[in-house]
Amino acid sequence: MQELNNKIAELLTNNLVSIFISYKKGLNGKIKPAFFTKPNEVYENYFGDEAQQNLAVYVHKPEVKKYSKVGILANIFALKALLQLYAENQIKDNYLTIVTVNQDNKVIVFADFNEIESYIAQHQIEKNTNKQKEINELLSLSREKRWEFWVEQLSSCIKCYACRAICPMCYCSKCTVELNQPQWISVPAHSLGNFEWHIMRMMHLACRCINCQECSRVCPMNIPLHLLTTKINSDMEEEFGQIAGMKTTLDFALNTFKVDDYENFIR
């Protein structure tokens, strides 16, 4: 931890970053994001298992973008998110200083995104077998039972959009639900509106979701959104051989067009 604190203080002191995004302990003991602008604030820095939030989401925030150079402490999910954002041309060159702490507690400052790509390749996250079990159980049900399951889950949605807000991949400055001239999808939090919202979001995340499962963590209604993202991710891997957050360049499964693509399904 001291090594990390020294590194952050050094980056701030030498003006290599004007703000550093990390974690600290709140008044109630909950670990929350911290935004350090001065080296003398860094003593508050916290990094450990409780530091869950994917900080990559803050690189889109207009107030953060005002800072000329941003430093960020990234866990493995934040690294994947940042790499995916880079591949989607969402991160300017020389804007971010990305720092991580590896499993041997060594502080690593990445020189570029190629280094992040190879770091991620060496640090594969093991597939969560519990999640896979949950999905398999759901898949073993009949179509009608699965429908009932999702009707029950999604009708409880209150449309607070915490899932969208916490998601590093949800960076549209105007979301489809906010396009209201005319209204594209139904926005009230009734069953139809909730289904349209979650299906639309999942489609937009296909092959872009890096599976940090922050949407599930933050949902006030405890809707298991990770079941949808995990299933879509595994389908994408199976059908198109693509996994998000692995490469500096990529083809998007759902919006890449080739002249020899099949067309016989279009009627």
Binding site: P33, F35, K159, C160, A162, I166, S186, P220
Partner: peptide
């Protein structure tokens, strides 16, 4: 400014609040 930097602009606080009364009218 500095205290609101973590805020991501979702509506969770308002929707769980017993006194938040703001609403929007939607015609379908």
């Amino acid at each position: 400014t500095i205290n609101s930097l973590p805020c991501l602009g979702c509506g969770a606080c308002a929707f769980v609040c017993p006194t938040c009364t703001c609403f929007n009218i939607e015609d379908e």
